[in-house]
């Protein structure tokens, strides 16, 4: 990714602020730019790949970067550039969908448990603890055996695996906020549960919840390839980035681009998402309160 000069970013930042009303700082903007770039790649990948992802174009394996194969070849001699571009579809798409579902469910349930308390809290907490105690490999195998393999199933499985964690963290945050005077006041006003969690709790835990979102995104990107290898989800010849690293790990001793580049792609995406989240305008909360 090319780095725009700093002053351009500042200008962009101001413009952005003018339109949306939030102030996004330059680092966050770089993060956003990278995310957008990968999204564009994901959407247009079938049109821009130089070779078909399944085609063997190199008699060598773990080939180096060259003029014909920009990112070298993989363990079978397939074009790495094409495989990475196509892999963006799975890694960006599936991970974002799964993390959004996991965090939304987890956070909503967590806030509900914290605000309601009592037996609702107990039952929800223990059920999700129990869910978290089931080993994810066993869980994945059961899903494959019971419902078979498809992308929606993969997304839901990833979400279910990460809901308990999101829940636990959100609940811990919400419990603290729940003891604050302004929540008590709102309760006395007779506000509904929905109002309480949306207007009083959520805005006050948004920062850490978003940080949790960013981290869970990383976990999901990595688990994705593990589940693909269990037979759940992305099917050959296609592969997500994690699976590319995994299938080409034999190239590590040779420093093959086939293993280095997908790792860098993962890192660029996950770091961007987290930088973007860290640098989200602090004022979102204030906006919400109006």
């Amino acid at each position: 990714m090319k780095r725009p000069p700093a002053n351009t970013i500042a200008v962009l930042g101001t413009k952005f602020r003018g339109r949306v009303g939030y102030r996004v700082n330059p680092v966050g903007l770089i993060g956003l730019a990278i995310i957008v770039a990968w999204t564009v790649v994901a959407l247009t990948a079938p049109l821009i790949i130089p070779h078909s992802v399944g085609e063997i174009v190199d008699f060598d394996y773990f080939g180096p970067m060259s003029r014909t194969l920009w990112l070298g070849s993989d363990y079978l001699g397939r074009d790495m550039l094409s495989r990475i571009l196509m892999g963006a579809r799975y890694t960006v798409g599936i991970s974002l969908a799964a993390v959004a579902i996991a965090c939304t469910c987890g956070v909503v349930l967590g806030m509900t448990a914290a605000v309601t308390g009592g037996w609702v809290d107990t039952i929800l907490s223990r059920l999700l603890d129990a869910l978290n105690s089931i080993p994810s490999k066993l869980f994945g195998l059961v899903v494959v055996a019971a419902v078979g393999s498809s992308i929606p199933v993969l997304i839901l499985t990833l979400s279910v695996i990460y809901i308990p964690g999101a829940y636990r963290f959100a609940r811990a945050l919400a419990v603290n906020v729940n003891t604050m005077d302004f929540v008590l006041v709102a309760r006395i006003r007779g506000e509904s549960l929905f109002y309480l969690i949306r207007a009083e709790i959520l805005p006050n835990i948004l920062g850490p919840v978003l940080a949790d979102f960013g981290l869970r995104f990383v976990f999901i990107v990595l688990l994705l390839s593990g589940l693909s290898f269990l037979g759940l989800g992305v099917q050959p010849p296609y592969a997500d980035w994690g699976a590319l690293v995994r299938e080409n790990i034999g190239g590590l001793p040779y420093g093959a681009p086939a293993v280095i580049v997908p790792s860098l792609a993962i890192a660029s995406l996950t770091i961007s998402v987290n930088l973007f989240i860290d640098n989200l305008p602090a004022k979102i909360r204030d906006k919400e309160e109006h």
Binding site: S52, G54, E55, I56, S149, F229, G231, Q235, P236, P237
Partner: peptide, 19 residues
């Protein structure tokens, strides 16, 4: 995957399922 790629060239659609 190799047989799948060869099939794709002549219009044979093989759906490889890794289980």
């Amino acid at each position: 995957m190799m047989i799948q790629a060869a099939g794709a060239e002549i219009g044979l659609k093989l759906d490889v399922q890794r289980v």
